[in-house]
Design a protein around this nucleic acid. Structure first.
Lengths: 235, 235
DNA sequence: CGTAACTAAAACGTCATACTTATTGCCTCA
DNA sequence: TGAGGCAATAAGTATGACGTTTTAGTTACG
């Protein structure tokens, strides 16, 4: 525990304390942090504090102005696509809202990505897709949620990567985060929806057969299901 | 010009030199930068260099390791949603590919955003939408491309914001960048496609009438047009 | 009495330097 | 030949000094 705590370097430690504090609303927008106060609070040098501030500034979480200090920016300014911001928000009280935002984003992106994948996926990627779809089938019953999750994440990652769009591909982590969050916050004894499993198999089929329209439509059904599921779980 | 050059601070100057150099492939992936070399190259102190490195690291453009130096990461690692990375890539040789990625992203997101906007837009937002759509009509003929562009950007910004999804809203800058790029790289004497203009007016209508399906479908037509247009312009 | 200009302080920005720590490559010894 | 230790290297951290900008307070003048 001692090693994981210090997370290799004072810098990361301070960042992983300040970042969550900001996105959780603990340091509300408009509040001011002074560097020397932070120095003292975390018992680190100005070097470290300044570097952390610069990183937070690059995420648009704070703005540093002379004579006034480091002011926390309102949420509308935040770089909500920064993986760390996403992680911090998912770990805080804003989790439901963040989960909803991400799921809506998924619902927009994944169908288009699947359509593109159907036109561009390599034979290897088609094989991977089929493999993971079958893996989902195999693990969809009997409380094997963890193993099911692995295949589910891998499936969506392959689709996003196979779309050939670098920006879609980068959403793989986001989808993984959402799926993981769903699994771990659900009652762990409910097996996955069989309909969803079937849909994945059919998407793999459609991609393999280069049927872009069908791949897109089927994926749209999947994400629609995810949205509906969210309504049950989130406030 | 002298003021804009120094851009308030050595930090930004170095960042705006190194960032573009990396995303343009000038510093190829795997190449190593040493901090003392950068100090000398930009004639700044270690403080500045280290802070720049930390910011670049937070964008996953580089990774800093002891005893080895700062290594440039491959493009797959980059935080391609970081506004600065997008701007740097649009300014470099990777521009066509980046423009294509962004347009594909638009084609996925904007229709869904329009559908949501139809359900959630406030009366004020509906009014803004109509206003800008009419503004587009008014400026669509007679070489008023600059003024047309302003309305076009504003229109899409309102849609994204009215969707109620923070992540969609943050794509407003991206869309603005794409639209600006298109206008400025097109022959400046060709007026906008009348069909596109009409579509915007009809989207505003659909949103005002709370017709989500129509708003989505019409927006899909718009972005399909944008994709087709891109095929003409980009290699 | 009000406004404008000036001054002083507060906080960040930058620089220079010394020291620490982790990593890697080389060299020695078995 | 291989394994282990030693030394060199470059990043990480700490600290003190000084510059710069912005704000607020104060004073002087109309």
């Amino acid at each position: 525990m001692d090693r994981a705590d210090r997370a290799q370097g004072r810098h990361e430690h301070v960042l992983d304390s300040l970042g969550p504090a900001i996105v959780s609303g603990d340091c509300p927008p408009g509040s001011v942090l002074r560097t020397d106060e932070l120095e003292e609070r975390f018992d680190v040098s100005r070097t470290v504090v300044r570097e952390v501030i610069r990183v937070l500034e690059s995420m648009h979480l704070v703005a540093s102005r002379r004579r006034v200090g480091v002011t926390v920016l309102p949420p509308e300014e935040w770089n909500v696509y920064d993986p760390r911001v996403i992680r911090w928000r998912l770990a805080g009280p804003d989790r439901p809202r963040q989960l909803r935002s991400l799921t809506v984003l998924r619902s927009a992106v994944e169908p288009v990505a699947a359509g593109l994948a159907a036109r561009l996926a390599t034979p290897e990627q088609c094989a991977e897709l089929t493999e993971h779809a079958l893996g989902m089938v195999a693990t969809s019953r009997g409380q094997q949620l963890e193993r099911y999750l692995v295949h589910d994440i891998a499936f969506h990652r392959v689709v996003l990567r196979a779309s050939g769009n670098e920006m879609f591909a980068r959403l793989g982590d986001v989808v993984a985060e959402v799926l993981t969050g769903r699994t771990h916050h659900q009652v762990m004894f409910t097996d996955p929806d069989p309909a969803a499993v079937t849909l994945h198999v059919r998407v793999a089929e459609a991609v393999r057969e280069r049927d872009a329209a069908r791949a897109e439509a089927l994926t749209r059904e999947i994400v629609t299901g995810a949205m509906a599921e969210l309504d049950v779980l989130a406030p």
